[in-house]
C-alpha cells in the first residue's frame, strides 16, 4: 500500500476510531425529547401568536397614518395611504412614486422602470448598517421583467433576482410561495464578518501553481493549471487579485479569459474567487476587507460574470 492509499485509508478509518459514550448519547436523546416537549407546550395559542400581533400592526399603522395626515396633509401622503387602503404594498407605492417622477420615459404606452430605478426600489426594501450595493443592471431576455426577494439584517443582506414574463412587485407574495412563477436569475448576498480572517476564509482564495495541475497557456500573459479529478477537468488560474476555476467544457476557460480581456471584475481588497461551470452551478465571491460579496444560484457562468462586472 503506497503513501496515498495509506492516507486515504486512515481518513476512512477515522470514524471507527472515535467512540461516543453510549450513555452520553442516550442522555442527549432524553434531553432532546424533553426540549421537544417544552417547545410543543410553550407554543402560544393562535389568538396570541397571530391575531394579537396582526391587530397591533393594523392599529399602529392607523395611528401613524392619522398623525401624518394631521401633521402634513400632503398630496403624496394621501396618495400613498389611499394606495395602501387599496391593497398596494410599500413597494408598489414606491414604484408608483418613481413612475410619477419620470413621466416622459414611456415604453410601449406604459412606462417601464429602468433597472436603476428597480435597484433603488430593491434597496428601499432593505435596512442594514453596511452600505447597500447591488449590480447596476442585469441583462434580461427580450420581454422579461426583473423582480426580487430581499432580506436584510444589521451585518448583511441578500437579494434573489427573478425574471418573469409579467411584472411582479418586489417581495410580492407570489415570489414566496411554492408556485412561484418567476425564474431565479441569481442570488446576491453581502455579509460583514467580525474579523479579517473570517472574511478571508469565506473567500477561500487560492494561488495556483504547478502543484495545482499541468501548466497550460491561456494567453500571452496568463497560465492556467489543468487538473482532472473524478473524471472532470478543472482549469484554474490567477488574474490580478482573483482566483478563477472553470470546469465542464474546456472552451469555457478560453471564453472566460476572452471575456475578462474586455470587462473588469470588481477590484477586491484583498481577494476574490470565481468558480464557473457549464454544469449549471456558479459561485463568485470577493471581499472588501471584512465585507464579503457573493453571487450564486446562477446557472450560466457568463450571467454570473456580468452581474459581478456590473456591481457598484
Amino acid at each position: 500500500m503506497n503513501e496515498d492509499q495509506k492516507f486515504e485509508q486512515s481518513l476512512k478509518d477515522l470514524n471507527k476510531d472515535i467512540i461516543w459514550n453510549e450513555q452520553r448519547q442516550q442522555q442527549i436523546r432524553n434531553e432532546l425529547i424533553q426540549q421537544m416537549h417544552r417547545n410543543q407546550n410553550s407554543k402560544k395559542p393562535k389568538i396570541k401568536r397571530k391575531i394579537v400581533p396582526a391587530f397591533s400592526i393594523v392599529l399602529s399603522l392607523a395611528i401613524v397614518a392619522i398623525i401624518l395626515l394631521t401633521e402634513f396633509g400632503t398630496h403624496q401622503v394621501l396618495d400613498n395611504t389611499q394606495a395602501q387602503l387599496n391593497g398596494m404594498s410599500q413597494t408598489d407605492v414606491r414604484m408608483k412614486e418613481i413612475k410619477e417622477k419620470n413621466p416622459n420615459n414611456h415604453h410601449e404606452g406604459n412606462r417601464s422602470l429602468t433597472q436603476r430605478e428597480i435597484m433603488d426600489a430593491i434597496k428601499g426594501q432593505m435596512s442594514s448598517q453596511i452600505p447597500l450595493q447591488l449590480p447596476k443592471k442585469i441583462q434580461l431576455p427580450e420581454g422579461k421583467h426583473l423582480t426580487a426577494v430581499t432580506s436584510s439584517e444589521q451585518t448583511g443582506y441578500e437579494v434573489i433576482f427573478y425574471q418573469h414574463d409579467e411584472p411582479i412587485p418586489i417581495n410580492n407574495q407570489q415570489l414566496l410561495g411554492e408556485d412561484n412563477p418567476a425564474e431565479v436569475i441569481a442570488r446576491v448576498s453581502v455579509q460583514q464578518y467580525d474579523t479579517q480572517k473570517q472574511a478571508d476564509d469565506a473567500v477561500a482564495y487560492e494561488v495556483f501553481d504547478e502543484e495545482s495541475g499541468n501548466a497550460t497557456t491561456l494567453n500571452e500573459e496568463l497560465t492556467g493549471y489543468k487538473k482532472t479529478t473524478d473524471g472532470s477537468t478543472h482549469m484554474s488560474w490567477n488574474v490580478g487579485r482573483w482566483a478563477i476555476t472553470t470546469d465542464g467544457e474546456h472552451s469555457l476557460s478560453t471564453e472566460v479569459v476572452d471575456y475578462l480581456d474586455n470587462y473588469m471584475l470588481p477590484p477586491p481588497r484583498e481577494n476574490g474567487f470565481a468558480h464557473l461551470s457549464t454544469q449549471g452551478i456558479n459561485h463568485i465571491v470577493w471581499q472588501n476587507e471584512t465585507t464579503v460579496y457573493t453571487i450564486d444560484q446562477v446557472t450560466d457562468p457568463f450571467t454570473a460574470l456580468e452581474i459581478a462586472v456590473e456591481f457598484e
Binding site: 492516507f7 477561500a204 487560492e206 502543484e211 495545482s212 487538473k227 479529478t229 473524478d230 472532470s232 478543472h234 484554474s236 476555476t245 472553470t246 470546469d247 468558480h275 464557473l276 461551470s277 454544469q279 452551478i281 456558479n282 459561485h283 450564486d296
Partner: peptide, 22 residues
Amino acid sequence: GWSEAKVKSTAFRGKKALKKHL
C-alpha cells in the same frame, strides 16, 4: 451550499494541505 466544482477543488487542496501538515 457550494457548487460541485468548488467541492472538488477545495477537497483536492484541503487534502494536499492535510498531507503537508501530517
